[in-house]
């Protein structure tokens, strides 16, 4: 089968696009880095692609709050294209700033309240300032939840990934949190609740969530920064045999899952 086509969305301030591109290519996708101007102008059609990735960075400088300007732009200028993309059962992943964007568009968690076929695009949760009140870059232990998420199917129960953000504290009203649990939309949790294990103070240690279908996924940690085992901050502590075994990092599986899903569903 042909390689699944992945659109990696860029705009002013996007800065994790190159490594997200590398991740999808290593996973076996065909990729294109596309500036949102080209989607808005119609030069590029979103629906020619099977996967949409919104990488990390500081879109439009994170002015007002993280991800909001890009979210507004997507919501109001790409409404039809996005609705069709989602309705066709295609995949969306937002990493860090991309997760912030998805939350602010309402595509995540995307709990359907109106019974309508198209996404409601209503913001139901938020990613607030870290409780430490500063930008922090560190590696965190994650627990993989049993969720509907197609990106994390069959991956390890414990995953180690880096975070690097100032606005990553996932928070939501109690009823939304309850629904997330009952719909199996919580994908990753920080392994422990105390700082710095939960690096931002997220509610119930949530690090990543998906929509009810499991096809839209957002997370604060950066799987695209752990594609090679030597990205692990303690790889030099591994034994000689472990050091020379596989070269793959924990993060790659997420991108491979996306590629395999598209291949097997022929989307």
């Amino acid at each position: 089968m042909l390689k699944p086509k992945t659109l990696i969305l860029r705009t002013a301030g996007t800065n994790c696009d190159a490594e997200t591109d590398a991740a999808f290519q290593l996973a076996g996708a065909e990729t294109a880095l596309i500036h949102i101007q080209n989607l808005i102008s119609g030069k590029v059609n979103l629906n020619d692609y099977q996967i949409l990735a919104i990488p990390g960075g500081f879109s439009y400088g994170d002015d007002i709050s993280a991800g909001i300007l890009l979210a507004v732009e997507m919501k109001h200028k790409l409404t039809d294209a996005l609705n069709r993309f989602v309705a066709d059962g295609k995949l969306i992943i937002g990493i860090c700033n991309g997760f912030q964007v998805l939350v602010r568009t309402g595509l995540l968690p995307g709990i359907n309240r109106s019974g309508s076929d198209t996404p409601e695009m209503m913001q139901q949760t938020t990613l607030a300032m870290n409780t430490s009140a500063k930008f922090e870059c560190r590696w965190v232990d994650l627990e993989t939840e049993k969720s509907t998420c197609v990106f994390t199917k069959g991956i390890k129960e414990q995953v180690y990934l880096p975070v690097a953000h100032a606005e990553g504290r996932f928070t939501a009203p109690p009823d939304v949190l309850e629904e997330l649990e009952s719909n199996k939309q919580v994908v990753f949790r920080y392994a422990k609740s105390e700082y710095p294990h939960n690096p931002n103070g997220s509610d119930v240690n949530i690090a990543g969530i998906c929509d009810p279908t499991g096809r839209i996924f957002g997370l604060m940690p950066h799987p695209e920064r752990f594609l090679m085992k030597w990205n692990h901050p303690r790889w030099t502590r591994l034994s000689e045999t472990e050091r020379t075994r596989s070269e793959e990092g924990d993060g790659l599986a997420i991108f491979k899952n996306a590629v395999n899903y598209v291949k097997s569903h022929g989307k």
Partner: peptide
């Protein structure tokens, strides 16, 4: 920790190391 040292996905030896 306030500096992003892992962006671009190429870090091999971090500024902070050890157990």
């Amino acid at each position: 920790r306030q500096y992003d040292h892992a962006v671009q996905g190429g870090i091999v030896i971090n500024p902070l190391v050890g157990v």
